[in-house]
Write a protein that binds this DNA or RNA. Structure first.
Lengths: 194, 194
DNA sequence: TACTTGTTAGTACGATCGTGCTAGCAAGCG
DNA sequence: CGCTTGCTAGCACGATCGTACTAACAAGTA
């Protein structure tokens, strides 16, 4: 048997190297060589883990969604419905370096997705999941009477979803919007539904 | 004198070729050669119009903002404040092929902007302008009493802005959100401010 | 200790990249 | 007409791209 290697861990390390290269040089400048160098391995080794660049990018994109989903699930134990809702939504806002990196990578790969059908499918999946999460949050709050119980959940989920993604993008780019103001805006929005 | 050429027109034609290449192949695959071929000229000729790829991308991005701004200004003559507000906001939603193309190109170049300081500056400019337009719309509606006059314009402009950009992105990617539903959502949102 | 086997590093290849450069073409002036 | 001048086309260059391939290596088995 050869050297024992945790394959999953290796995939994660390489994907995170992709993230850093995207952040530093932009999606257009991502090359297999750069990623391998960033991960500290040779491009030949990288190729044994990801057979093609398309696979590499797809996995990197999926890992973003996975990480966000995992963190969101850890908040399921929060008992206060308001706190739980806000905690979940905060996971898709660029409130710290880690989340900012995830959002930048996601945006870059979304922008590249028109060309790659695989990326498009992954982006669509993530979009549907976040939409579902928004709807679930609103349903939960409405059932507990914390927001108006007669709202149209689908309509309001669409609005909340657009608000969250728009705010995230503006924080990424902007000099006017900050993590704090975005976070507050989402909370205020939910309160206006009460 | 050589052949008489409308320099501005040539720049526009090339920039629109950039748009088409971005739409078709993604920002990562944009090359000077492809753009020249798409525009029907040689890469040497392109180089006399745009000295570098960075200039080419920057001009293409600025042209998106210019086109949107020009169309928005044509709506200044609409007398009904509601109709005027919605008409302006509709210009940044991907409601038809032309606007969809502009939004896709803008998103792609925004995603590439971390790498290129010039693109970042242009993206920031566009963001500030749209924010200003949102604030102006809200101020106008509030002064006429069409929405609650005691709203915090800055806060609501931030929310409207995030909503518009988020909805635009979801229509671009999504299979759930359509141009119609996005348009209706924006209109409904303004009405909830009344 | 030999063998097997999955992993690694490094190289090679054809294609394509951004960009510089040069010869030639087309149009107005003297 | 011939000259000037600005635009055009196309090639050349070095660099870098994605990918394929091969030899060396490391670790567990018999």
């Amino acid at each position: 048997m050869p050297k024992l290697i945790d394959h999953d861990r290796r995939q994660h390390e390489i994907a995170e190297a992709v993230w850093r290269v995207i952040q530093r040089e932009g999606i257009g400048a991502v090359s297999v060589r750069d990623v391998a160098a960033e991960a500290g391995i040779s491009s030949g080794s990288l190729r044994h883990v990801f057979a093609s660049k398309a696979e590499l990018l797809a996995y990197s994109m999926r890992l973003v969604a996975t990480r966000v989903r995992e963190r969101a699930q850890t908040h399921a134990s929060i008992t206060d419905p308001w706190q739980r809702a806000l905690a979940v939504l905060d996971e898709v806002l660029p409130l710290d370096d880690r989340r900012r990196c995830e959002m930048e990578v996601n945006l870059a790969l979304v922008a590249e997705s028109p060309a790659h059908p695989l990326l498009k499918e992954i982006a669509l999946d993530a979009q549907r999941q976040l939409r579902g999460a928004c709807a679930a949050i609103l349903t939960g709050l409405a059932q507990r009477g914390l927001i108006a119980p007669d709202i149209d959940v689908d309509t309001e989920a669409m609005r909340l979803h657009a608000l969250v993604d728009g705010a995230a993008m503006h924080v990424l780019l902007g000099d006017t919007d900050t993590p704090d103001t975005a976070q507050r805006m989402i909370a205020d929005h939910l309160r206006t539904l009460a």
